[in-house]
Computed example of a mutant assay.
Amino acid sequence: MALSREEREQFLAEPHVAAFAVAGMAGRAPLTVPIWYQYAPGGNIWIMTGRDSRKNELLGAAGRFSLMVDRVEPTIRYVSVEGPVIGTTSATVEELRELAARYLPADKVDGYVDFAAKNHGEQVVIRMRPERWVSSDLGSV
C-alpha cells in the first residue's frame, strides 16, 4: 500500500542510509552507492560528497538524482524520491557535524568530523528538491 505524503516524508526524515543513484556515463549503468543524507518533512534533501568525486561529476552532467531508503521491520517499507539538483555549495564543518550527528552516537561525532576534515578532501553539499516519490508499506509479509 502506498504511503501518504506525511508518512513518506516522515519515513525519509528518519536516519536511514540511502541508496543514491545518478545517471552514469554513456554505455554504463547508473552509479548507485550508499550515502548519508539530511531531510526534514516538506523541505529539500541534501547530501555531501567530494568536490572531485565521480558522484559530483555525474551530478553535474545529469542535474538530478534519486535516493531510496527501506526497512524490513516491523513492516517492509520503502521510499524512493527523485528530483533536480537546486544548488551546490562548499561544505562547512557545521554541515559535516550535522550529518555525522544524524548517523553516529554523540560520543563518536567529534572524532569522525576531525577524521573526515583531514582525510576526505574538499567536500560539497548538493541540494535536491523532491519531485517524484514512490513509496509502499508491504506489511509484515
Rank of each mutant, 00 (worst) to 15 (best):
residue 1 M to G: 13
residue 1 M to K: 10
residue 1 M to N: 11
residue 3 L to M: 12
residue 6 E to H: 12
residue 7 E to S: 03
residue 10 Q to Y: 08
residue 10 Q to I: 07
residue 10 Q to F: 08
residue 10 Q to M: 09
residue 10 Q to S: 12
residue 11 F to G: 02
residue 11 F to M: 06
residue 13 A to V: 06
residue 15 P to F: 09
residue 15 P to A: 09
residue 16 H to I: 00
residue 17 V to W: 02
residue 17 V to D: 02
residue 19 A to C: 06
residue 19 A to Y: 00
residue 21 A to Q: 00
residue 22 V to F: 02
residue 23 A to S: 13
residue 24 G to A: 09
residue 25 M to Y: 13
residue 26 A to R: 07
residue 27 G to Q: 05
residue 28 R to S: 01
residue 29 A to K: 02
residue 30 P to N: 01
residue 30 P to V: 01
residue 31 L to K: 01
residue 35 I to S: 03
residue 37 Y to R: 05
residue 39 Y to T: 04
residue 40 A to V: 14
residue 41 P to C: 09
residue 42 G to H: 04
residue 42 G to N: 03
residue 43 G to C: 05
residue 44 N to P: 09
residue 44 N to F: 06
residue 44 N to M: 07
residue 46 W to T: 03
residue 48 M to I: 13
residue 48 M to S: 11
residue 49 T to P: 04
residue 50 G to A: 14
residue 51 R to N: 09
residue 51 R to F: 07
residue 53 S to P: 04
residue 53 S to G: 11
residue 57 E to H: 15
residue 58 L to P: 00
residue 58 L to F: 01
residue 59 L to H: 01
residue 61 A to F: 05
residue 61 A to P: 01
residue 61 A to G: 06
residue 62 A to M: 05
residue 65 F to P: 00
residue 65 F to K: 02
residue 66 S to K: 04
residue 66 S to R: 03
residue 66 S to T: 03
residue 67 L to C: 07
residue 68 M to G: 00
residue 69 V to C: 00
residue 70 D to T: 03
residue 70 D to H: 07
residue 70 D to Y: 05
residue 71 R to I: 07
residue 72 V to E: 15
residue 72 V to K: 08
residue 74 P to V: 06
residue 74 P to G: 12
residue 74 P to Q: 10
residue 76 I to N: 11
residue 77 R to T: 15
residue 78 Y to C: 11
residue 79 V to D: 04
residue 79 V to I: 06
residue 80 S to W: 02
residue 80 S to L: 08
residue 81 V to L: 06
residue 81 V to T: 06
residue 81 V to Q: 05
residue 86 I to K: 03
residue 87 G to N: 07
residue 89 T to M: 11
residue 90 S to T: 14
residue 91 A to P: 03
residue 91 A to M: 10
residue 92 T to A: 02
residue 94 E to P: 05
residue 95 E to A: 13
residue 95 E to D: 14
residue 96 L to C: 12
residue 96 L to A: 13
residue 97 R to W: 08
residue 98 E to P: 07
residue 98 E to F: 09
residue 99 L to M: 15
residue 101 A to I: 10
residue 101 A to E: 12
residue 102 R to I: 14
residue 104 L to N: 10
residue 104 L to Y: 14
residue 104 L to K: 13
residue 107 D to A: 14
residue 107 D to Q: 15
residue 110 D to P: 10
residue 111 G to T: 11
residue 111 G to V: 14
residue 111 G to C: 10
residue 112 Y to W: 13
residue 114 D to T: 15
residue 115 F to P: 08
residue 116 A to W: 07
residue 117 A to M: 15
residue 117 A to V: 15
residue 118 K to S: 15
residue 119 N to W: 08
residue 121 G to E: 09
residue 122 E to V: 13
residue 124 V to W: 05
residue 131 E to R: 08
residue 131 E to W: 09
residue 132 R to K: 14
residue 133 W to F: 12
residue 134 V to Y: 03
residue 134 V to N: 04
residue 135 S to T: 06
residue 136 S to Q: 11
residue 136 S to L: 10
residue 136 S to F: 11
residue 136 S to W: 10
residue 137 D to C: 13
residue 138 L to P: 00
residue 141 V to S: 13
